[in-house]
């Protein structure tokens, strides 16, 4: 504990003065409360605001979501809605062939499911690869490592809307990408009007925006591996590639698993930056699940909260499975002990 210089502490005092005053005013009634309810009552008092907010804004919606998913109509409030049982789920699953979204009653839902599935598979694979390579490179004996780490971390803090706009600007017809290609002699292309390129763009942009975060976790894992293991391996004449497969990867596994599950969970819920970048288009080529739920529940002409709730419960089920997977993997990792 160091002494603060007087200037800093007087500034601090100035900032703290109103807070002290406010907290001080609260003291008298709360002393009375403490006298009335005892210390146990005060514990409840401290916990109350948080629990209240959790209860109203997380737990309550969580439970009535099931009720919503079993009602129909466009009414917003539950009492005004008609009970339809499993009708909404039946509608979601009403398909002649699950492989062809066009054959489904709710074809946009299946399009969104298909798009999300492809997105998850490709984005997660690439994200892990890119983050892992970056982490391995940052873990080398680099000069100014914290600078390079910051470089890759920079986009993580940007808002998804800003990320979407930055890339929308770059991928548009007069954008930087076309400029670069023009310099190489190619014709300009309107990337986001092309189904495949737009899909690829959502993957690339989401990786660009979030890879720094996962790189950081993986880098922390790499730095926790004792250096003497590599020295021992070198003494044994182990080649670097073999050292990677036999030392680095097994020891990094716990962090890697955490990252894989985190990336999976986030990929399933992808929305913000894609919504700004492509708006789900062109057509429905980049329509993902969260956007489907949002549009079905809020934005569509004839909104259908029941259908949106049913779809969100299905997505929630996938997320719960993924989270339990993480917990299960974490536990077996612990049980397995140190290798």
């Amino acid at each position: 504990m160091r002494t603060h210089n007087s200037g800093k502490s007087s500034l601090g005092a100035l900032v703290m003065a109103p807070i002290h005053f406010l907290m001080g005013i609260l003291d008298a009634p709360l002393r009375w409360l403490q006298r009335a309810t005892g210390i146990g009552g005060m514990a409840a008092f401290f916990l109350m605001p948080n629990m209240l907010i959790f209860g109203i804004f997380v737990l309550l919606p969580f439970f009535i979501n099931f009720a919503y998913s079993m009602t129909g109509g466009t009414a917003l409030f539950l009492p005004d809605r008609t009970f339809v049982g499993a009708g909404q789920y039946a509608r979601l699953f009403d398909c002649r062939s699950y492989l062809d979204p066009g054959s489904c009653a709710e074809d946009t839902f299946w399009t969104a499911v298909k798009n999300t599935a492809w997105f998850v598979v490709l984005q997660v694979t690439l994200m892990i690869l890119v983050s892992l390579v970056t982490a391995l490179i940052l873990n080398r004996d680099l000069a100014a490592r914290s600078f390079w780490r910051a470089v890759f971390f920079f986009p993580v803090l940007l808002s998804p809307v800003v990320v979407g706009l930055i890339w929308k600007w770059i991928l548009q017809r007069q954008g930087l990408l076309n400029f670069g290609l023009y310099g190489l002699g190619f014709d300009p292309h309107v990337w986001l009007n092309d189904r495949n390129w737009a899909f690829a763009a959502t993957i690339g942009v989401s990786i660009w925006a979030h890879m720094g975060f996962y790189t950081l976790i993986l880098l922390a894992g790499l730095q926790a591996i004792p250096k003497d293991l590599y020295e021992a391996a070198e003494m044994d004449g182990t080649r670097p590639a073999r050292a990677f497969w036999r030392i680095t990867l097994p020891l990094l596994m716990p962090n890697l698993l955490v990252v894989v599950v985190l990336v999976l969970i986030r990929a399933v819920q992808i929305f913000d930056e894609v919504y700004v970048l492509t708006g789900g288009g062109p057509g429905t080529s980049t329509l993902y699940l969260t956007q489907y739920i949002y549009e079905t529940g809020f934005a569509a002409q004839l909104r259908n909260p029941g259908l949106a709730a049913a779809a969100s419960i299905l997505m929630g089920a996938v997320l719960v499975v993924l989270t339990l997977l993480q917990l299960g993997l974490g536990r077996s990792e612990k049980k397995g002990g140190r290798k």
Binding site: F54, F62, I293, F298, S312
Partner: peptide, 21 residues
């Protein structure tokens, strides 16, 4: 309970949350 709410992201509860709000 608090930690379990980590598993309930906004995208899953936005419809009922909207009605509550």
């Amino acid at each position: 309970l608090i930690l379990a709410t980590l598993m309930v992201p906004l995208s899953v509860i936005m419809v009922p949350l909207y009605s509550i709000v």
